[in-house]
C-alpha cells in the first residue's frame, strides 16, 4: 500500500498521518505533540447501507476511513455532495452504525460501545450541532438552549444565565426567548441550535454546516464561538461549505472522497 503522508513541518503523530490509513510518519521526529491529546480517532471504518425493502440493495459508501483530531484542533471534512461527509460525522456521533473499524472519542469506542456509554459520552464529552433543530413542541427557546446544561446537573439559574448570554450573542431578540423555536425562521432555528450546541463546553464537537443560511454578522459570531472552543482545547470536526469560514477556523482539511470504496486502493 502506498501511503499519502502530508508534507508538514511539525511531524507530529496527530496531523501527519497517512491520509488513507492513518499510519504514523516514518520519522523519529514525530513526538512534538503528545498522543494523549488525540480526542477523536477514526481507524479503518467501513460503512454500507442495506435497503431490505428495495430488493436488499447494498450500497457500500465508505471503506478504510481514517481521521484523528487533537484537542484544540479543527478539522474540516471536504468532498462533493454525497461523498460521505455527513455519514462519517454521524458515525462519530453514534447516530449511524459502523460495520468495521474503531471510532474512539475520549476513551469510548463509539463503534462498539453500549447505548448507555454513548449517551453518557454525548451528555458530557461529545457535542453535535446538526443542520436541523429537533425539539419537544411548546418548550420555550430559553429552556431548549439550557437543556444540555440541565442534563449534566447544572442548576436552573446558572443554565439559564448561560443560555441568555448565548442567545444575546447570536442576536436572537429577547422577546422570542419565551416562545418555542418551532415557529422561528430557518436562520433563527439554526442559531438556537448553535446556542444549544455551545451551551456546554464539550471537549469534542461535531459541526454540520453551522454557518449555512446565516448572514455575515451571525456567521462571524459562530466563527468566534468555534475559535473560542478551540482555544479552550476542544477537538472539532466540521462540515463547512463556505471556504472563507474554513480558512478562518480550520487547521486542515480531510477529503472524504478518498474513503469511497475502491478509491483508496
Amino acid at each position: 500500500m502506498i501511503h499519502n503522508m502530508p508534507i508538514r513541518n511539525c511531524w507530529c503523530r496527530v496531523c501527519c498521518r497517512c491520509e488513507y490509513c492513518g499510519a504514523l510518519p516514518q520519522t523519529p521526529r514525530f513526538n512534538l505533540r503528545n498522543e494523549d491529546e488525540i480526542m477523536i480517532e477514526v481507524q479503518s471504518v467501513a460503512k454500507s447501507f442495506v435497503l431490505h425493502n428495495q430488493g436488499s440493495a447494498v450500497f457500500p459508501v465508505m471503506e478504510g476511513a481514517a481521521l484523528s483530531v487533537a484537542a484544540g484542533e479543527c478539522v474540516a471534512l471536504v468532498g462533493a455532495s454525497g461523498a460521505g461527509k455527513s455519514t462519517l460525522m454521524r458515525m462519530i456521533y453514534g447516530n449511524y452504525t459502523a460495520q468495521a473499524g474503531r471510532i474512539v472519542v475520549g476513551d469510548v469506542d463509539v463503534a462498539s460501545a453500549a447505548p448507555r456509554e454513548i449517551l453518557e459520552l454525548r451528555r458530557k464529552t461529545l457535542g453535535y450541532v446538526s443542520q436541523f433543530l429537533r425539539v419537544v413542541p411548546r418548550v420555550p427557546t430559553l429552556d431548549v438552549v439550557a437543556e444540555p446544561l440541565r442534563a449534566i446537573g447544572i442548576d436552573q439559574d446558572t443554565a439559564q444565565a448561560t443560555a441568555r448570554s448565548l442567545l444575546t450573542r447570536l442576536n436572537i431578540p429577547e422577546r422570542l426567548w419565551a416562545l418555542s423555536p418551532t415557529t422561528f425562521s430557518g436562520g433563527e432555528q439554526q442559531r438556537v441550535n448553535i446556542a444549544r450546541g455551545f451551551a456546554h463546553q464539550y471537549p469534542a464537537m461535531l459541526l454540520d454546516e453551522p454557518t449555512a443560511s446565516l448572514d455575515a454578522t451571525n456567521r462571524a459570531v459562530v466563527l468566534d464561538l468555534i475559535l473560542a472552543a478551540k482555544a479552550r482545547g476542544a477537538a472539532i470536526v466540521g462540515i463547512l461549505h463556505d471556504e472563507d469560514a474554513r480558512a478562518a477556523v480550520c487547521d486542515r482539511e480531510v477529503d472524504v472522497s478518498v474513503f469511497a470504496p475502491g478509491a483508496a486502493a
Partner: peptide, 20 residues
C-alpha cells in the same frame, strides 16, 4: 439500540419498513 441510531440507520428489514 440507541433511539436516534435505530430510527436514522435502521438495520433490520422490519425497522426499515416501519421508519419509511
Amino acid at each position: 439500540g440507541l433511539t436516534d441510531q435505530v430510527l436514522d440507520d435502521p438495520q433490520h428489514a422490519y425497522t426499515q419498513l416501519l421508519v419509511s
